[in-house]
Design a protein around this nucleic acid. Sequence first.
DNA 1: CGAAATATGTAGCAGTCGCTACAGTATATA
DNA 2: TATATACTGTAGCGACTGCTACATATTTCG
Lengths: 188, 188
Amino acid sequence: MTKSAKTRKALLAAMGPYVLKYGLNTASLRPLAQAAGTSDRMLIYHFGSKDGLIAALIEHLAGELAMSLTTALPQEPATTVHDCAVEIVSLLRSEPYKAYMRVWLDIVSAAGQGNESHQRAGYLMIEGFLQWLQFRLPPDTPEPERAAKFVLTLVEGVMIMDSVGQTQTADVAVDALADLSASGKETS
Amino acid sequence: MTKSAKTRKALLAAMGPYVLKYGLNTASLRPLAQAAGTSDRMLIYHFGSKDGLIAALIEHLAGELAMSLTTALPQEPATTVHDCAVEIVSLLRSEPYKAYMRVWLDIVSAAGQGNESHQRAGYLMIEGFLQWLQFRLPPDTPEPERAAKFVLTLVEGVMIMDSVGQTQTADVAVDALADLSASGKETS
DNA sequence: CGAAATATGTAGCAGTCGCTACAGTATATA
DNA sequence: TATATACTGTAGCGACTGCTACATATTTCG
């Protein structure tokens, strides 16, 4: 790795916590630079533009998140789809994932407003998340890909509910999943 | 209604389309004023501050949306929970609702970053949405409140998927709902 | 060693931000 | 009609935005 690439990585690592704390959409160069112990001048130098920096930050944080998720839960997958959803929601509500989810909603919002870079990044993050989730489902799940998409979509809905204080609605929604998936199985 | 209240309403009505087009989080006084045919000076005069204006805009748009939703779908509720979800997703993906959903994600994002005014507004919008949704469910739905929360949470997830270009994932998720709810029913 | 490439600090530009002081006009009320 | 209240235009303040010109180090390498 070139030295310049190492510098970039170090800067991103230093700015990551700042973004997790204060968000992505309202971030500006000078505060970011201060968090990284450098100047706006140098951020532009290393990342070309603010857009380049933001894209690099998203990639960095997405990588961190993906890495962290692979070891965050017990090796064994869940025993029911409902348990799987509960497990994931509980995880994403805990630190440090909560902060990542806030940034995630920033990305989603900007993507919705037409920011193509954010949209691409968001698309890929969902892809990765689906991949990860697929192997956390019960091994006997009939159509794991389909089930993963279903669970992830529901979980994303939970993130929205949480962010506006509708935690209880989210809880009920996840709970209702138990009824549905239970009705498709024999009683144990 | 006082004359000043009428002016406020007219201004909000003029700024609404601008917000629907360009988003809420990146809006600033001067462009908003231009869209309303007035000046930033007057916006501050009528709404006290930018925060006051944004809050009023959210309330205005939320009212418009709620009003529009009451007549947007056939009088008869859906025949299955799955149909209900499909109906709503299809509606929210069409104009003009698509634009409202983009603003909705702006609100969600800002609420997640700690904006209490946005969070309150978002909380209430979910409440209203739940109320509306509850009476669009099949009349024989066992626990309509619970089902409404479940469907709405899933629909919110669909909104996220859509905004990052994962429309197909959202489609599969909604489709998977058919399997689940079907498995709990007799085959017709 | 000396030249070339890389890295960094200083200072500032042109633009936007929310907001306000000041002055003035229109409108309503007494 | 006189006075108070509501409204609105002009102009600008101080802070912040992304970014850049210029000069200066520091490092790398033939």
